[in-house]
Design a protein around this nucleic acid. Structure first.
Length: 300
DNA sequence: ATTTTCCCCTGCCGGC
DNA sequence: TGCCGGCAGGGGAAAA
């Protein structure tokens, strides 16, 4: 699923191809895609406009227009953006929701199998991310995100650290996959109360978050399910994942079998030896209950 | 104020 | 072969 590294990969590919181009046409094929539900408004806001910048905030992609307005997109679960030098071949895009045409003959398609993705036009003079999301947290790769800041954000929270890492109003851009990866790299059990880590653990987690995100960006994102980059190509990060979607496989660090459980409505993967649960009972292999159905370790 | 639960969507996959 | 339940998870709203 597109998280920060996947959106950043797409942004980096689209920016040089879109900036300076003018929109010559836009087709909204799925009214559900636009918010508020008024496709005509999106069309009129885009038609004839020149794209001045393509940026990212959290998991949002932001296209600044010469009108001062911004086209904001969120891919959610299965959204894809695909730039092509020309028109997509008939039938090439199976779940096409929208198509944008540019003045150099290129097109950008928005495909989305599950129709959770959204786009909206943010009026001039408004912070696009704030306008849409209400409040977005700190950029985990920005300079302002320090270990101390992370500790402050987590302070006093009793909810599981994994769940809190997914809260976009605190840190913007982490999703289920990279939360698992960062916690493993930092050797922190995902169910630990968010405010209960030691200073050393917050430092390790801070480092791990940035490291895993950077590795993922360098690898062009993770094509676990339907993710493709801005040119339709799969990423390589799925091969570099440490624990996520690897239940039943050996831990890359110690060889212990990786476990899976549901935490906060989300599948969660961890190594019971590298990430011991201080509060929770037997973190050893052979835990009597709750692990019986955790044997689907088929990925790749 | 924080935390938890439910819901939105649809393709895919394993089981029967 | 085909139907069916379960699963995937970002995010927002509602409930606790």
């Amino acid at each position: 699923m597109p998280e920060l590294p996947e959106v950043e990969t797409i942004r980096a590919q689209l920016a040089p191809r879109l900036v300076g181009r003018r929109v010559t046409g836009i087709e909204i094929r799925d009214p559900l895609l636009v918010e508020p539900a008024d496709p005509a408004r999106v069309v009129s806001a885009l038609q004839g406009r020149r794209i001045e910048a393509v940026e990212r905030r959290g998991k949002y992609l932001l296209c600044a227009l010469d009108s001062g307005a911004t086209l904001a997109l969120h891919l959610r679960m299965t959204g894809r953006l695909h730039w092509r030098a020309g028109e997509p071949a008939p039938g090439e895009e199976r779940f096409l929701r929208a198509l944008v045409r540019l003045d150099d003959g290129a097109t950008v398609s928005f495909g989305d199998q599950r129709r959770f993705g959204r786009m909206r036009v943010v009026p001039a003079g408004t912070d696009p991310a704030e306008y849409w999301a209400g409040r977005l947290g700190i950029e985990p790769l920005g300079d302002a995100f320090t270990a101390r800041r992370l500790a402050e954000l987590m302070a006093g929270r009793a909810a599981a650290i994994k769940t809190v890492l997914l809260d976009q109003s605190l840190i913007a851009g982490l999703g289920n996959m990279y939360a698992d990866e960062a916690l493993f790299a930092a050797r922190v059990h995902p169910a630990r109360p968010a405010g209960s880590l030691s200073d050393a653990e917050y430092r390790a987690l801070h480092r791990a978050i940035r490291k895993r995100l950077r590795v993922a960006i360098a690898a062009g994102g993770a094509s676990i399910d339907s993710y493709r980059d801005g040119l339709g190509q799969p990423g390589r990060m799925q091969e570099l994942l440490l624990v996520h979607r690897r239940a039943g496989e050996p831990c890359p660090r110690c060889g212990t079998i990786i476990l899976k459980r549901t935490l906060g409505q989300r599948a969660t993967y961890w190594c019971p030896r590298c990430q011991p649960d201080p509060a929770g009972g037997p973190a050893h292999a052979g835990t009597p209950e709750g692990t019986r159905r955790d044997h689907e370790g088929v990925s790749r």
